[in-house]
């Protein structure tokens, strides 16, 4: 049971981080279906940076690995976000179409880069020093507190970063002027524009930073979830995680703090196929049990739309292109 929850939390943090990025984009009114592609690009570039660095240097320094990996994946994912916002905000192309193309493009790019720089078309490549950095435990609390340590402190630092980002995002959305403006842009760009808010700038910033965060989730996935091993076959796994993150945003009704427990539900469902049958003493097919997160998402989608509460419906202009001169 404890291992199950532990694994669920590890998985939850990963999905939450990706979903936080997507949430930021969606708050500005952009439904970015390029999330899976962005995640793949972030994962590939981050891993390549760490791998190349560890190869080049005899004694890799922990801090440089950390900064290099995170920065590279953040920036490269941001680039994808930049393409997304250029196409949807400046060129006003349909968001769904651009997002889907970016997913195709991003997955291809990730695969290409990893073959080009790491030279492995098949099999795993490992980067152990980076894995050690990402899975390093907090010295004292991780060991001495029994069950509490196992449940809460047996993870790498990214989990806590994720929680911090979620809390930070909640505060920014609800307590600051920037957050208010951002929500205004997402709800009604025309109103925001009339109020003197630079709509394009907010949309650009939200998608770029959001994509960057999503990219971090990609590298987090490689370094901790996949224990520092990278294979091009992982791209399809990451892609599936990306779609789950998109679903999770809806599940959490566009609230950053809801992501935290929402993702936990996803995590428990995700690992249910491994632990639940044994605990209940029944036999369930793995494939059918893996359907659970998707079914739950659909149920939540329906419940959210059933309750006519306006604040649960998500940004009103989500998925729509804003053109000032259009009535």
């Amino acid at each position: 049971m404890i291992i199950w929850i532990q694994k669920a939390i590890g998985f939850a943090a990963l999905i939450t981080l990706a979903a936080l990025g997507e949430l930021l984009t969606e708050k500005s009114g952009g439904l970015n279906l390029g999330t899976p592609g962005t995640m793949c690009v972030g994962a590939a570039t981050g891993f390549i940076a760490a791998f190349r660095y560890c190869q080049a240097v005899e004694e890799p320094s922990v801090i440089i690995i950390l900064i290099l990996t995170l920065l590279v994946s953040f920036l490269s994912a941001m680039l994808i976000g930049l393409i997304y916002s250029f196409f949807t905000v400046t060129l006003r192309i349909n968001q769904n179409v651009v997002g889907l193309v970016l997913t195709i493009f991003g997955c291809g790019l990730a695969e290409f880069l990893s073959i080009y720089f790491v030279q492995s078309s098949s099999g795993n490549v490992r980067c152990d020093p980076a894995n050690r950095v990402f899975t390093a435990l907090i010295p004292w609390v991780s060991e001495k507190l029994g069950v509490v340590s196992d449940l809460l402190f047996s993870y790498g630092f990214m989990l806590y970063v994720t929680i911090a980002i979620a809390v930070g995002m909640h505060l920014v959305f609800n307590k600051t002027r920037i957050g208010l403006n951002l929500r205004a842009v997402g709800e009604s760009p025309a109103t925001a524009d009339a109020a003197g808010i630079n709509v394009s700038r907010y949309k650009y910033a939200a998608s770029c930073i959001g994509s960057g965060i999503t990219g971090l989730a990609g590298v987090y996935c490689v370094m901790e979830f996949k224990s520092g091993a990278w294979a091009t076959a992982d791209i399809s796994t990451i892609q599936a995680f990306g779609w789950m993150a998109v679903a999770l945003v809806i599940f959490a009704v566009w609230k950053p703090l809801n992501l935290l427990w929402g993702s936990l539900v996803f995590g428990i469902c995700y690992w249910a196929y491994q632990y639940l049958p044994g605990m209940l003493g029944i036999k369930v097919s793995t494939d059918l049990a893996q359907m659970l997160p998707y079914i739950i998402t659909i149920i939540v989608l329906i419940i959210v739309s059933l309750g006519k509460k306006k604040e649960n419906l998500g940004p009103a202009s989500l998925g729509m292109t804003y053109f000032r001169e259009e009535r």
Binding site: V101, I104, F105, G108, A110, F112
Partner: peptide
């Protein structure tokens, strides 16, 4: 690699 093929298709579509 086949991945380069995907990139070319992606660039074209974009």
């Amino acid at each position: 690699s086949p991945a380069s093929a995907k990139i070319i298709v992606g660039v074209m579509l974009l």
